Computed example of a mutant assay.
Amino acid sequence: MLRIISANLNGIRSAAKKGFMGWLNDQSADFICVQELKAQQADLGPEILSPPGLHAYFHHAQKKGYSGSGIFTPHPVKHVQLGFGNPEFDAEGRYVEVQIGQLSVISVYMPSGSSSLERQEAKFRFLDAFLPHLIQLKKSGRQILLCGDVNIAHHEIDLKNWKGNLKNSGFLPEERAWLTNLFSELGYVDVYRQLEPDASDTCYTWWSQRGQAYAKNVGWRIDYQIATPELAQAARKAGVYKEQRFSDHAPLIIEYDWKL
């Protein structure tokens, strides 16, 4: 089984203090995709840069304490790509891709637009720039697994308070249409939803830090594993890990009947 984990850490040093690295070392995962590092290379100690038995690949933002993405894997990697060729968003450290054989695993941290109109406009620019890259990846004939914080809930079932968020970033019609196009027209697969088509309250991966959202399970499903069809068909088991809290997100874990 190929075991894949995706987790937004909202600060990798903060998550490490809450036990994330120890948990990661116990997971026997093939790839652990992490987002929102909020750290530069020089800020990280050996516990994070060189965990036992794992290689670590990070794409740091130029701005300190901001964004960032990474992948941990025990496997020797043939090729690593940092960024997807867009200067604006590559400067924010939003994309890491590793290749092993015919498989490409990607950790992506897509922008949030919730803080301001300017950031929402940046989010739309990201979506416009990222889609052609995903099209080219699919045309390459490789098996693609895109993991990360997409910052979009696709359907009403994917968040608790959908009626109250119809005009809010993360559930805007244009954002949801982007995902619909990705899945329905371009042929990528939302792997969690393929395995758990009816999951609602158990599907959430992020909770606001306001108003006891976690305690009341007022959550959103904004963390995904998105795959090309052949790989998606090999998915066997999916779950959201909530026994420990490392950040305001919970790790999404999916297992695939796939050999590297």
Rank of each mutant, 00 (worst) to 15 (best):
Y57A: 00
Y109C: 07
G11L: 06
A250Q: 03
E196C: 13
Y57P: 00
S140F: 05
Q136V: 09
I5L: 09
D43P: 10
L131R: 15
E92G: 05
Y66E: 01
L103S: 07
Y224Q: 02
W258Q: 05
I135K: 15
Y241S: 04
G22E: 14
V96Y: 02
Q233S: 11
Y241L: 06
I226R: 01
A15E: 02
L172F: 09
S140Q: 10
A227I: 01
S104K: 15
T202E: 15
Q99H: 08
F84G: 05
G93S: 10
A29Y: 00
D26E: 15
F84L: 06
A61Y: 06
H59E: 03
L145S: 02
N181Q: 13
E118M: 07
S104A: 12
S208G: 14
I222A: 01
D158T: 05
A122K: 14
F126N: 03
S184A: 14
A129S: 14
Q233H: 13
R210Y: 13
A91Q: 15
Q62V: 14
G148H: 01
V218Q: 09
N161L: 09
R94H: 09
G141K: 12
N8D: 07
V191C: 03
E255P: 04
G70W: 02
L54M: 10
K242M: 08
D257H: 15
T205W: 01
Y192R: 01
A39E: 07
C203S: 13
F84D: 02
R119W: 07
H133M: 09
S169E: 03
A250P: 00
E230S: 13
W258K: 03
Y224D: 05
Y66V: 00
A177C: 05
V240E: 01
A234C: 12
L103W: 08
A15H: 03
R210K: 13
G239M: 14
R119I: 03
D190Y: 01
M110P: 01
G85F: 12
F246C: 06
R245N: 08
A177F: 08
Q212G: 13
M110C: 14
S114E: 15
L9K: 04
E121K: 15
Y188R: 03
P52M: 11
S140K: 10
G101A: 08
S104W: 09
